[in-house]
């Protein structure tokens, strides 16, 4: 998907979202609907204005001039074909990370996926094992024991080995 298409889809998605919130808000009792209806009514014309100004400007990739609010501009290297390829791989890995946490549990899934990422990035084996072990130490020592946070078992491990 090209950047122009992606940009248009984003604008239109917001427009659709605000239309939905307005219509859903109108169906709610008055007190519950006040904020959603008021906010959506303001957001709809503003989104149209924002999309209009986007279309008026040229189609070259613009960097974000949002430095006043704490964001740095998107650099040119982040929007190259190579960058998008790396981002796609990241999304696949990130989905795997969440899936592994769900299936194998936090204590197994997260260190395992960290190890896989590091090895895939051709980091030295010893360093990769060390960092993955550190994650395990942080999870078990810091969160599970230190903060008394019960980290969930994996769905798959529960099925295979029981609770």
């Amino acid at each position: 998907m090209s950047l122009t298409v992606s940009r248009t889809v984003l604008g239109l998605s917001l427009l659709a979202l605000f239309t939905y919130t307005l219509l859903a808000g109108l169906d709610m009792p008055f007190r519950a609907s006040m904020l959603p209806v008021l906010a959506s009514s303001l957001a709809l014309p503003l989104t149209l204005i924002a999309i209009f100004f986007e279309w008026k400007t040229d189609n070259t990739v613009k960097t974000q001039a949002d430095d006043s609010s704490g964001d740095l501009a998107v650099s040119a290297s982040e929007v190259s074909a190579d960058a998008f390829r790396r981002v796609r791989y990241f999304f696949v890995w990130f989905t795997g990370l969440i899936a592994c946490a769900h299936l194998l549990g936090f204590l197994v899934g997260l260190p395992l996926m960290v190890l896989i990422y590091l090895l895939a990035q051709k980091e030295p084996l010893k360093l990769s094992i060390f960092l993955s072990s550190m994650i395990l130490v942080i999870l078990y020592g810091g969160f599970q024991k230190g903060l008394v946070l019960p980290l969930p078992e994996g769905v798959l491990t529960m099925m295979l080995f029981g609770a």
Partner: peptide
């Protein structure tokens, strides 16, 4: 490459 997976893992636990 060292930061990304470690912070991602901590982010997942932080959200949970």
């Amino acid at each position: 490459t060292l930061l990304v997976p470690v912070i991602c893992a901590v982010s997942v636990v932080g959200a949970f």
